[in-house]
Design a protein around this nucleic acid. Structure first.
Lengths: 189, 189
DNA sequence: CGATAAGGTGAATCATGATTCATGATTATA
DNA sequence: TATAATCATGAATCATGATTCACCTTATCG
């Protein structure tokens, strides 16, 4: 998705560095990282931030979107493994674990978004939708092989990702994931 | 728990109004409600806030503590019902639903705490501990009557309360609770 | 190699919000 | 009721952080 037309080489480089720095700092220091800090971390001046992203909200939105991209890719990879013969339920399970860390990060960024204005008004572009679509197919497949409770929906999965304990230690997070997935599995209604 | 000595009547009244206003506003408008707003909602001037709570953090801490008190009370009530003959597993289940809304609120306030400095350094006084102790006894009882997976711990429950989807609609929250509790029940390991 | 438009810089501006403090009420006693 | 503590008030102070803009740099292309 190139801009109007070719972006100058250095500009493209800076844009990437900014996005990365924004992600890192927001994840690590929470919603209130100053734009100045992000600029410093990216090795540019504030003005440059604003050339690429007109407001802080826009920057945060871009970071979120990049997470959705990552998650959607992860989901597609899982789907590919299913196509290659892996049991859908197992693929979903490992996908959940894989996405978890990404989701944890995403939540941190979402918090940033919330602490500003419209939290959900932020893009929610096609990337999220792409991920949701894939997820729906995987869920259907997992139900078909009998590993998932029949009433589980994509929304449930999304809720799962939404409630990932962001600040918990990895071990705690894994335990949480285990409990949650057990609630998802067939056996109960 | 009286202060140094008797608090002037009007002062006590204000103190209560402030705590209530702080709770309401933080829950509704998020971590960044200005002290001015809280003061206005409580019907006092900012200076009065500061007479009762030396910093914003202190105020938020007090609000959190009051939530812990509420939750601990709720847990004790559940324990009483068990003593009165209710099945422990059922009591735990309904307790979870009961605490959920309170926890949702509490999370909002915790977010406020986090957005400032030390999030866990805030009190965590005896009220939290009281609740934890009761919870532990209820869990033991529920395991005894065979309704709970054997490896469930108090920490798991705490994690559950910690991850309540704060901003979700009540129906969504209920669904989430159902899924989670199914993960807690006996049947899986 | 220039010319030039695209890109970068960072001090200055502007807004918001926590916290303080000199001054004016109220409540609780003697 | 008179007086001393206690409280309450809110404008002023101070700090922080987003955003802008007039002025330099440099990539790109003939």
């Amino acid at each position: 998705m190139p801009r109007a037309r070719t972006l100058r080489a250095d500009a493209a480089r800076n844009r990437a560095k900014i996005l990365e720095a924004a992600n890192d700092l927001i994840v690590e220091h929470g919603p209130d990282v100053p734009m100045e800090s992000i600029a410093a971390a990216a090795g540019v001046a504030v003005g440059t931030l604003y050339r690429h992203y007109p407001t802080k909200r826009a920057l945060v939105g871009a970071v979120i979107e990049s997470h959705f991209t990552h998650m959607a890719d992860e989901a597609e990879a899982a789907e590919a493994r299913i196509a290659a013969g892996e049991r859908a339920t197992d693929a979903l399970r490992s996908l959940a674990y894989r996405i978890m860390d990404g989701a944890a990060h995403n939540q941190a960024v979402k918090a940033a978004a919330r602490s500003m204005g419209a939290d959900d008004a932020l893009h929610h572009g096609s990337e999220l939708q792409r991920g949701i679509d894939v997820l729906a197919r995987i869920i259907a497949a997992a139900k078909a092989d009998g590993g998932l409770r029949a009433d589980l929906t994509v929304e449930d999965l999304l809720l799962f990702f939404k409630t990932v304990p962001v600040d918990a230690a990895p071990a705690v997070r894994a335990r949480w994931c285990e409990l949650m997935l057990d609630g998802f599995s067939a056996g109960r209604p």
